[in-house]
Each structure stands twice: as structure tokens, then as C-alpha cells.
């Protein structure tokens, strides 16, 4: 889904009175599933559209996004390669990504 459609979705959701956060890939190292600029929009119920990886870190990004919606403060997330603890969030491809998560402020 192109980013502009994601922005459209964000506006539509905001018009429906939903509280939102926008996550954007700002930096990548090595192989990463989605390039810089890839975006994801999340609402307060955890519904989302778009992607910031191939599904590897979305769950963690959504959890962080909910905290950003609650606090109204942006934050920067970083994910690296999955280590031997298989349940840890990370990228199986061996890359590293940094993601900026910001709230959508209605005022």
C-alpha cells in the first residue's frame, strides 16, 4: 500500500474520532524488509494499516504505538537481529531498523 493511501486512511480514521499513532522507518542497516519511509498507522484499539517490516516487528511497534497514543509523546524504537532467544522481537533477515512513532494530534 503506497504511503499516501496510508495518510488518507489516517485522516479518515481521525475524522471518525479515533486516536492514532504513525510509525515511520527512519533508518535501516543491512538487509531490511521495508525501506526507509515505510509507514504504519495504528488506532487505540490496535487496528493498523501499512507495514514497517515483513511482519517481524509489527506486533511490538503496535504495542509501543498504543503507549504513544496514551502519552501523546513521540518515541524512537530500534530493532536488530533476532538472537537465540526465539521469542525476542527482531528481524530474522539480520538487518537493523529504527522507527519513529508519533501521535496524531487533533489540536
Amino acid at each position: 500500500m503506497p504511503n499516501e493511501d496510508i495518510l488518507q486512511t489516517a485522516r479518515t480514521w481521525a475524522q471518525q474520532g479515533k486516536q492514532l499513532a504513525i510509525a515511520t522507518v527512519i533508518e535501516t542497516w543491512g538487509s531490511s524488509p521495508r525501506p526507509r519511509g515505510s509507514q504504519l498507522v495504528v488506532d487505540a484499539s490496535g487496528a493498523f494499516t501499512g507495514s514497517v517490516s515483513g511482519g517481524c516487528v509489527e506486533t511490538a511497534v503496535i504495542t509501543e504505538s498504543l503507549a504513544v497514543i496514551r502519552s501523546g509523546q513521540p518515541r524512537i524504537l530500534e530493532y536488530g537481529v533476532t538472537n537465540e532467544r526465539a521469542w525476542e522481537v527482531g528481524l530474522a533477515c539480520g538487518g537493523r531498523i529504527r522507527i519513529y512513532v508519533e501521535p496524531l494530534l487533533s489540536h
Partner: peptide, 14 residues
């Protein structure tokens, strides 16, 4: 991001 910024961004795209 402010909603007004999002509106301006989408308008510019259109």
C-alpha cells in the same frame, strides 16, 4: 503530527 499538517500534506498530494 498535527491533523492540520496531515491535511496540508494530503491536499498538496491531491
Amino acid at each position: 503530527m498535527r491533523l492540520t499538517t496531515l491535511d496540508q500534506l494530503i491536499d498538496a498530494r491531491q
